[in-house]
């Protein structure tokens, strides 16, 4: 995408000032927790996400990432703690919070029996986008996602990458300051995956959106995220920039634990903090959900 094109679009769609150096905290959680019966899915989550950053929530399947996102998108009431998003209280001001966030669920969430345009139209209406700017807003979103040619085709004829783009378009139609993406690239082939990465970087750059995503692809986290938090068994075990986390492991490896001379990757960091990956593969329903999504998108 050309620079001039972007500036142009930015004026139409967005009139937000450029990034500030001391960025405000836009997502703040304090001891946020959720338990199901006796099982603690998320335990005392303390997160501070700055406006305009891409924040990655990493962890093995079943670590509590999706539960955390469901709480922050108001889908799941927390059983303890509190949180504010864009200044609104997650529990007491849930309707206002919903206006402030966009959400792309892990599973396929575009409606295959409608066209791409219709999928966007419905959500534009649900988010109260004024009737006069409806068409323009949708057209711009379609262009941004490179879907304008396919807009009047039924979504069930789309490729996995196109569906993900459409879903992201749906989630940002109302120009939310915060977007939550749950495993945005699961089930996508490498080309579609890097296209989604580019898209997220563009969203951040062009619209200064704050993006919180969950992933278990370390490469994704490393290349996309300004900061990451690694979760395991419902708790955040470490937070930091990918570079800082790798550095800390490199210096640690000097004091005994060897990485066989190679510099640490984010994979090493992940394994260091979460232990054996094989043991933490998530439960049956996690696995079946991921595979189902993979199948549909692939």
């Amino acid at each position: 995408m050309g620079v001039t094109e972007q500036t142009n679009r930015q004026q139409n769609w967005e009139d937000q000032p450029p990034l500030q150096s001391d960025r405000p905290i836009i997502i703040q959680t304090q001891m946020l927790g959720r338990s199901f019966d006796q099982v603690i899915a998320v335990d005392a989550l303390n997160l501070s996400v700055e406006a305009g950053e891409i924040f990655g929530l990493l962890g093995p399947n079943g670590a509590g990432k999706s539960t955390a996102i469901k709480m922050l998108t108001t889908l799941l009431p927390p059983t303890s703690g509190r949180a504010t998003i864009a200044g609104f209280d997650l529990i007491r001001q849930s309707t206002q919070v919903r206006r402030m966030v966009g959400y792309v669920p892990q599973a396929l969430s575009a409606d295959g029996t409608l066209t791409g345009y219709e999928n966007l139209l419905i959500f534009a209406k649900l988010y109260d986008i004024p009737r006069r700017s409806l068409k323009l807003r949708i057209t711009e979103a379609l262009e941004f996602m490179g879907l304008q040619d396919a807009s009047h085709r039924l979504v069930r004829t789309y490729s996995g990458g196109m569906i993900r783009r459409l879903e992201i378009a749906q989630s940002i139609l109302h120009q939310p300051p915060v977007v939550f993406l749950d495993e945005p690239t699961v089930g996508l082939d490498p080309i579609a995956r890097s296209a989604v990465w580019d898209l997220m970087l563009e969203l951040k750059k062009a619209y200064s959106m704050t993006i919180l995503l969950t992933t278990h692809f370390m490469e994704e986290a490393d290349s996309l995220c300004d900061r990451v938090a690694i979760m395991d068994h419902g708790r955040v075990v470490v937070t930091g920039t990918p570079a800082a986390l790798k550095d800390s492991l490199n210096s640690e490896s000097l004091n005994g634990k060897s990485l066989n001379g190679a510099a640490a990757t984010l994979d090493d960091v992940f394994i260091h903090y979460t232990g054996n990956l094989l043991e933490a593969g998530g439960n049956f329903s996690d696995t079946s959900r991921v595979r189902r999504t993979t199948k549909r998108l692939g």
Binding site: L75, T95, Y103, D128, S171, R292
Partner: peptide, 14 residues
Amino acid sequence: ERDLGIVHKFLASP
């Protein structure tokens, strides 16, 4: 729609 993520997205809207 629940088995997919469609219901989730409607519920996350205002």
